[in-house]
Computed example of a mutant assay.
Amino acid sequence: MTLHDDAVLVLKEFDGRSEEQAALRQVYLDHLAAHPDGMWKACTGGHLTGSALVVDPEGGRVLLTLHRKLGMWLQMGGHCEPGDTALTATALREAREESGIAAGLTLLPGGPVRLDRHAIPGLCAWHLDVQYAAIAPPDAVAAISDESLDLRWFRYAEVPEVADASVVRLLDATRERLAAG
């Protein structure tokens, strides 16, 4: 199965639990149907990306990166690479690379937590982000990557003070998934 095929399957199975998320899922599926290269950065009309919000549910914290190019506090994430076999592989690879937590980081079961489409000025038309949540092990030690200006744990209540609305929505959806068990 190709990464493109995996993405189509993941999106078809995604239940975003809202009309907005269902409509966005269809936008993603339509994009992939129209763009065989829609998984790759070279697709300038937009491409899928994978991200993961790293959470410490026991401590009520999330790990955010101060993105070097955008200057914003964000979840870990980025572009699909040729070695990625699935969207989960992209999200987990990016989470490990950008958090420095190589061992014990696992994706929250149940597939993507939400979808978020955002414009990337000057680089491409759209990032069609498939967003997961990753659970950090209790002894996790984070390390700043080359893609980051800073890396910091924030309590859930602090996130709206430092991050944009898309990160807050991702946190809310993650907390809802965690509560559902």
Rank of each mutant, 00 (worst) to 15 (best):
A103S: 14
L171P: 09
A125I: 07
G122T: 02
D5P: 00
I120L: 10
G60D: 06
P112E: 09
W73K: 04
Y156V: 03
W126M: 10
V54Y: 05
Q131G: 07
L66I: 02
V167N: 01
F154V: 01
L64I: 10
G38I: 08
Q75H: 12
A52W: 08
V8Q: 11
A143Y: 07
E13H: 13
G45S: 15
L87I: 14
R152P: 02
L24K: 13
D172C: 02
V62E: 02
A42P: 00
D172K: 08
G77D: 11
P160E: 11
H127V: 00
P36I: 07
R117Y: 00
C43Y: 03
P36S: 09
L3A: 05
C80A: 15
T90G: 03
E97M: 09
W40I: 01
M39Q: 10
V27M: 09
G100P: 08
L64Y: 08
T65M: 15
R96A: 11
L105R: 09
V10A: 13
Q131E: 15
A136T: 10
A102P: 00
P57I: 05
D146R: 13
A33K: 14
H47F: 15
M1H: 08
V167Q: 14
M72P: 00
V62P: 01
G181Q: 10
G60L: 06
E147Q: 11
Q26L: 15
T2A: 04
M76I: 04
W126E: 12
A23F: 01
